[in-house]
């Protein structure tokens, strides 16, 4: 019943490609269902416009160039904010994982500051950094920073002691210790942190644009709501969802490439 080895390998590959297909198909199926529900008037088009009319609104916005401008600034804020938070977050996480003293100083501060909703401090951030791009970038960076610090230090701490002993016994020190032992050992947890914090970053950038911006996807959504252009609001929401989707899929593929040593 097992068949040949080739058959088994083919079967495993088929299962994997089916899994990928499902990942692509599930959002499409949801959209189709939605379209049908509006057409047969199960859903109220005033609150839930059909995907086809949302697409029409998107095409309109794209033609005027408004959409691309909003998409561009939001992505820019997202990416800059992510790196501005991730780099120091990973560095602090490494130091916390390495030194119990750094850990003793930093972990109570993180425990206290991490749960503060970043949006609640947005007024303060605007006071300090102004109404421009910088205040959004800083908001995103703060959110990303804590998550990356927490995940990196947890990743370093869960590296099996035996590997630290091996490093010590063979004189693996300094930069090679970080490059060959700490970083790869903490990488699975670090990448999980990157996935979580990119999601949070997206939420933060849109929320900050709601409250204090004249451009960006968050502004597009807010403006659509205030001017009762519900389709425009949906255009913004759907694009945010698509960004989230692409980022997650992209990171999962990146994970596969970055961790070839994990048994799957």
């Amino acid at each position: 019943m097992n068949g040949t080895w080739e058959a088994q390998v083919r079967r495993a590959r088929r299962l994997r490609s089916m899994e990928r297909m499902l990942r692509l198909a599930s959002p499409i199926a949801l959209l189709l269902l939605w379209e049908c529900a509006v057409r047969v008037r199960v859903l109220d088009a005033r609150f839930f416009p059909a995907p086809s009319s949302v697409v029409a609104a998107a095409l309109g916005l794209a033609r005027t160039g408004e959409l691309w401008g909003d998409l561009r600034v939001t992505l820019l804020r997202l990416v800059l904010g992510f790196f501005a938070g991730a780099v120091p977050g990973i560095a602090l996480g490494m130091l916390m994982g390495l030194s119990r003293w750094v850990r003793a100083v930093a972990s109570p501060l993180i425990a206290a500051l991490y749960p503060i909703p970043k949006i609640a401090v947005l007024p303060l951030i605007i006071l300090i950094f102004g109404l421009g791009d910088l205040s959004k970038i800083v908001t995103v960076a703060i959110g990303v920073f804590f998550i990356m610090a927490i995940n990196t230090s947890a990743g370093v701490l869960q590296i099996d002691r035996i590997y630290l002993d091996v490093a010590k016994a063979y004189g693996v020190r300094g930069p090679s210790y970080v490059r060959e032992v700490l970083l790869p050992g903490a990488l699975p947890s670090l990448l999980t942190g990157a996935k979580v914090s990119l999601g949070i970053a997206l939420i933060l950038v849109v929320a900050a644009e709601f409250l204090a911006a004249k451009d960006g996807l968050g502004y597009l959504i807010w403006n659509g709501w205030q001017t009762l252009q519900v389709e425009q609001m949906y255009v913004g929401l759907v694009i945010v969802a698509v960004i989230g989707y692409v980022v997650t899929i992209g990171l999962e593929e990146a994970e596969r490439l970055a961790l070839p040593w994990l048994p799957r």
């Binding site: 035996i162 590997y163 002993d165 091996v166 016994a169 063979y170 004189g171 693996v172 090679s176 060959e180 032992v181 790869p184 050992g185 990488l187 961790l259 040593w261 994990l262």
Partner: peptide, 23 residues
């Protein structure tokens, strides 16, 4: 040292694990 328990780095290929001895 040759350790009693599993002690080679899971994230390195066999070749890289042996090269750890060359530090």
């Amino acid at each position: 040292m040759v350790f009693q328990e599993q002690s080679i780095f899971p994230w390195m290929r066999v070749r890289e694990n042996v090269a750890v001895g060359l530090h």
